[in-house]
């Protein structure tokens, strides 16, 4: 399966190496393994002991509560979007990056639409499980349609007001 990945801020199409394991299923021996939050909680020791990359996926109603201490053991956190109106995980992603300093992969899964990618990237997502019917080529363009931002977020871009007052990271000056 293909995903879109941001590498140094640039979008590229990539092969997905993660195996998504449902709650009853046995763990694969070598493949990077993505489990639910419940499975992580119940099988944490087994998962860690295997010495294979582990990822946790959060349903839209699940938060980082109780997970903060485990973040350094997780190579991936997948945040699920059940429909295109549920924006809770935009906050989760920002908290992961900005509050918890999480450096691993944050992946958007579920109803991920091309026209949400820019906002997702700003919130700290760096891989995207795009809906099958959407063009990957068009999706890659979604990241560069807008170059001006008006608020700081997880992507480190300098907001317009900071550029105007000569704030840090200003790379061009406003008239």
């Amino acid at each position: 399966m293909q995903i879109i990945r941001l590498i140094e801020g640039q979008p590229a199409t990539d092969i997905d190496v993660w195996t998504r394991i449902d709650d009853g299923e046995p763990l694969p021996e070598y493949a990077p393994t993505m489990v639910s939050l419940a499975r992580w909680r119940s099988g944490r020791n087994d998962l860690v002991r295997r010495n294979v990359a582990v990822g946790v996926r959060l349903a839209s109603h699940e938060t980082l509560e109780g997970l903060a201490g485990d973040l350094e053991r997780l190579d991936l956190i997948a945040l699920d979007f059940p429909n295109l109106n549920d924006g809770r995980h935009f906050t989760t992603a920002r908290l992961l990056r900005e509050r918890h300093g999480y450096r691993g992969e944050i992946r958007a899964t579920g109803q991920v639409l091309r026209d949400q990618l820019f906002a997702m990237a700003r919130c700290g997502f760096d891989s995207f499980d795009l809906q099958a019917h959407q063009s990957a080529e068009s999706a890659r363009e979604a990241f560069s349609e807008i170059s001006v931002v008006f608020q700081p977020a997880a992507d480190g871009r300098t907001a317009a007001h900071a550029i105007r007052t000569g704030g840090a990271g200003a790379h061009f000056s406003a008239s």
């Binding site: 924006g87 935009f90 920002r94 949400q116 906002a119 919130c123 008006f150 317009a160």
Partner: peptide, 16 residues
Amino acid sequence: EIIRQWSTNHPEFSFL
């Protein structure tokens, strides 16, 4: 106007 700009295309609050 300060609030308008901050809220413009706010990535976290676009799907409230």
